[in-house]
């Protein structure tokens, strides 16, 4: 007897989110991208559509990364202390489609750079490359509330994706993004309820739901990845079942998490039996990224060019119907 496969029918789909604005929309991006819009669980093309391919953003910092292991910093030798050159290298040499700029140097403990300095870095990068930009604060709420409004203003009209808005600190960033036409990342600590609460809080300020991306917070392989997986799966199921307050694309900071793992960054000299660190770190990032794709990630923020290339091939294969 033939087995009939059960097909899920969903009533809702994930919002589409556009990254970047071209000339005709008042921006200056030579390329823009759209993510989201899925109406099925990931890659189940018989149940619904995935109109847009997940994208990978390459992460750059506005200062020399203090804690990147050699295996990770090697591909960027010579540009790590120059964010504009770094950005160009990513786009020209590694074919990055999106860049994610973290304003690390503005953190009081990492240089305490001024809001104006950060804004000029943003402007310089936007001038040097044509891809859409994701812009992150340093994670210090007080300072971010000074820095990000300046950067938002400097990037007005470019439809950048700014982050992160949290339950405790969302008002300043939301107001800036609303005023300057950017999208926003809503962060929650691996908790579906808080994810939803941040979205409601942001939308209560009059911010359109279609311009929010969810950062569900993830863990790397071996560091709680399965918690993130199940939270993302639940949020996506809720979205497809009709929950508008969870119907946003996911952005996952894979590079940041994967390269924190000791398995990724410990030199071979310390653990000869673990093998070469280049491969380890790379694979840690690839496996974490692939797992996130399978639970619905729409934007992956990654670091190593080789890892990015491998995951891009995986996405190609997954997207084949």
């Amino acid at each position: 007897m033939a087995v009939e496969l059960i097909r899920d029918k969903w009533v809702n789909k994930v919002n589409t989110l556009k990254l970047g604005s071209g000339m005709e929309e008042g921006g200056s991006r030579s390329s823009t991208l759209t993510v989201g819009g899925v109406s099925t669980l990931p890659y189940l093309f018989s149940d619904g559509q995935m109109p847009h391919r997940p994208v990978i953003a390459m992460e750059i910092l506005d200062t020399k990364p203090p804690d990147w292991p050699k295996a990770l910093s090697e591909p960027f030798n010579g540009v790590l202390d120059n964010p504009v050159e770094w950005a160009k290298k990513c786009v020209n040499e590694y074919k990055a489609e999106v860049l994610c700029l973290k304003l690390q140097s503005t953190h009081p403990d990492f240089g305490d750079a001024s809001p104006d300095k950060a804004a000029s870095t943003v402007k310089a990068i936007l001038g040097a490359v044509g891809v859409p930009l994701i812009i992150l604060g340093s994670g210090n709420d007080e300072k971010d509330n000074l820095v990000l409004p300046k950067c938002s203003e400097a990037a007005k009209g470019e439809n950048c994706l700014f982050g992160d808005a949290t339950q405790e600190n969302y008002k300043t960033l939301t107001a800036s993004c609303l005023a300057d036409g950017h999208s926003i990342i809503a962060e929650s600590p691996i908790d579906i309820n808080i994810a939803k609460q941040v979205n409601i809080l942001i939308s209560d300020m009059g911010f359109p739901l279609e311009k929010i991306a969810i950062n569900p917070t993830i863990g790397a392989l071996g560091y709680g990845m399965e918690y993130a997986y199940s939270i993302m799966e639940r949020a996506r199921l809720a979205a497809l079942a009709g929950d508008k307050m969870l119907s946003m694309p996911f952005i996952c900071f894979v590079g940041f998490e994967a390269w924190r793992a000791k398995e990724a960054k410990t030199p071979q000299a310390e653990h000869p039996e673990w093998g070469p660190e280049v491969e380890r770190g790379l694979m840690w990032e690839v496996i974490t990224a692939t797992s996130m794709l399978l639970c619905g990630a729409d934007i992956l923020v990654m670091r190593h060019p080789k890892a990015i290339s491998i995951v891009n091939q995986t996405i190609d294969k997954l997207m084949k119907k």
Partner: peptide
């Protein structure tokens, strides 16, 4: 899970409180 979703006014699941209208500012 239910507790965390209740740590919101009135609730994370706004559909449960159809008659409650709160205007954000």
């Amino acid at each position: 899970d239910e507790y965390v979703s209740s740590l919101f006014f009135p609730h994370t699941d706004l559909n449960r409180f159809p008659t409650v209208k709160i205007k954000g500012k």
